[in-house]
Design a protein around this nucleic acid. Structure first.
Lengths: 326, 326
DNA sequence: GAAGGATATGAAATCGATTTCAAGTGATCA
DNA sequence: TGATCACTTGAAATCGATTTCATATCCTTC
């Protein structure tokens, strides 16, 4: 493989001059520039980016940490991030944690070892005190999940509002025993949603019951399993506010299996507004999250991050989409 | 940030010895080893991987090129690849082409510029003659999509069989006017599926019609649109073999909209066996592809690729899953 | 015509590691 | 006792680029 030295030798010029041509420095005589370009083509030369990165001290690579890329919400998030990154000739490294603290640490280490210029966290597994240490090595920003106390740039949605308007909608539809089935247990996002849920219940004078409030539900199968659980309670709920359309879809499927009629006997509310929400029968009433936009915005903030820690918190709007499941 | 020199200075040893400790060379006295480890901890030292990679001449990074990561098939593929890569402490760079030749070339260039150790192609946009040039710089392997003439390691499925058993199933269910709606136009995978489809038709003495055979369908919306098209033909088909469950789902949704009863008046066959196939009402009869396995296998081949171009072609099994849509 | 600035180029240092080579020590064995 | 071998260490070269600094030339401009 040809190196810059080969090009220099072939043209009789110095490595410096070749480097200047590569980096489009001014102050290179036009004829030498052409000479170098010709030689590069002749030799099939491409600069070794590892050497460039080592010297320039940047990698043009961003890591995005997700729980699971096959989860549609996160794959959409990554899609929009990759598009922005690609436009700026940045690479995107995907890191799956499976919500494992050790794996999250392993990936946070990418910034310490200078393998990436920045990290976008879409979920948070370790305590902030632990993650904080890594901010010394480069920009870390939140997208989707967040920690208010962290003081890092964040792109998020008003999850309290999500919980609130979703639950309020269920109540307005006439359901009185509203359950809640959210995602990660130890998360600001989940806490805020549940807070919104509880606030709506309280405002309407409806009871909150511990056994109606579940967390750690993510998949279709989780939805199925939890619906069965709920139905077998001594006092089963008559509606559920869920943390994702997958969980909602699983619940609807299982409800049909059990002969529970939706929405008449049981109301189901999703979250995200994934394609599946429209396809299900009945369609899933859900909270629309602008997934593409938050991914795009997060990457834009990352790429314009100029060592000036501006710590902005961007909150994008979400809204209710009513379909047949409520 | 501490460098290896700082550790050397702190311990009074040479950079060589520190490097030996880092790389677990034998022949380092136990007490010096402890001394170095202590100093590394003290200084919060982590080796700069860029420097390591430059010197060791490998990046421990693999690029996977997909059309779109948000497509569930590809996100599952990437998920399984990332898991295998992560176990071996390799990184995965995701590259989305949107089926754009230029973008594919841009990403193929990653191997030329030594930014990745290898590339897994899950779709193919440029001609093999063009891609071939890049195999000089490192391993390129196919996963899912393929080109028989290329002679590179390939993990694929028997797409001819997929087309054949799918179409045969439709015919056995009594449908006689079977349409076909596949993915990429210029692709061995699509060609093979269509070949299987046509072979099945021929064997049963059923007609093939150009206007029943569509390509470039990927999304739910494509499914909806094409179903409407097909229904408005002078002679509409009474069943369709599709290239993905998303397309099938879109068709089922649109059929309901048009008042076409599935499976009685129209049969729909999917491909992939995505979660949505089970969730739809009716469930989608589909060809199950072992997505996780092909991704896993492809990454395993990549990671065990020892400059010995063994060019194996791995073909994993696929099978029919009968549900309500046929 | 001297000073100052813009243009053009190359030698050498640098980024931060690994690797090669040479050399030293101490134990083992013929 | 001297040769061989295993172990241990460091100086210097190396990976392949960029950057700094020094130097040279050619215009302007006063």
């Amino acid at each position: 493989m040809a190196t810059i030295k080969d090009v220099a030798d072939a043209t009789g010029l110095s490595r410096s001059t070749v480097s200047r041509v590569i980096n489009r420095h001014p102050y290179v005589a036009k004829e030498k520039k052409l000479l170098v370009e010709e030689a590069m083509k002749q030799l099939g030369y491409t600069p070794n980016s590892l050497a460039q990165r080592l010297r320039k001290r940047k990698t043009e690579t961003i890591a995005v940490i997700v729980p699971r890329i096959a989860n549609p919400f996160f794959s959409q998030l990554v899609e929009s991030m990759e598009m922005v990154a690609g436009e700026h000739n940045f690479q995107l490294v995907v890191c799956q944690t499976n919500n494992n603290k050790q794996r999250e640490l392993k990936y946070l280490n990418l910034i310490k070892t200078k393998q990436v210029d920045g990290i976008i966290l879409t979920s948070i597994d370790n305590d902030w005190e632990v993650i904080k240490e890594y901010t010394n090595y480069g920009p870390i920003i939140f997208c989707n999940e967040y920690d208010e106390n962290a003081g890092v740039p964040t792109v998020k949605l008003d999850q309290f509002k999500g919980g609130y308007i979703g639950t309020t909608h269920l109540i307005e539809r006439g359901y009185t025993k509203v359950a809640c089935c959210c995602g990660f247990f130890n998360s600001s996002l989940t806490d805020d949603r549940i807070h919104g849920y509880r606030t709506a219940l309280k405002e309407r004078g409806l009871p909150f019951r511990d056994e109606w409030c579940r967390t750690n539900a993510f998949s279709i199968d989780d939805g199925k399993r939890i619906l069965r659980d709920l139905m077998h309670l001594e006092e089963p709920p008559d509606a559920v506010f869920t943390g994702s359309d997958e969980v909602a879809a699983g619940m609807i499927k299982e409800a049909k299996q059990l002969g529970v009629v939706i929405p008449e006997e049981f109301g189901v509310l999703g979250f995200d507004d994934q394609p599946i929400a429209e396809l299900m029968e009945p369609g899933i009433t859900t909270i629309h999250q602008p997934v593409k936009e938050i991914g795009k915005k997060a990457m834009e903030i990352m790429l314009s991050y100029d060592s000036k820690p501006l710590n902005e918190i961007v909150e994008l709007p979400l809204h209710l989409v009513v379909r047949g499941s409520t």
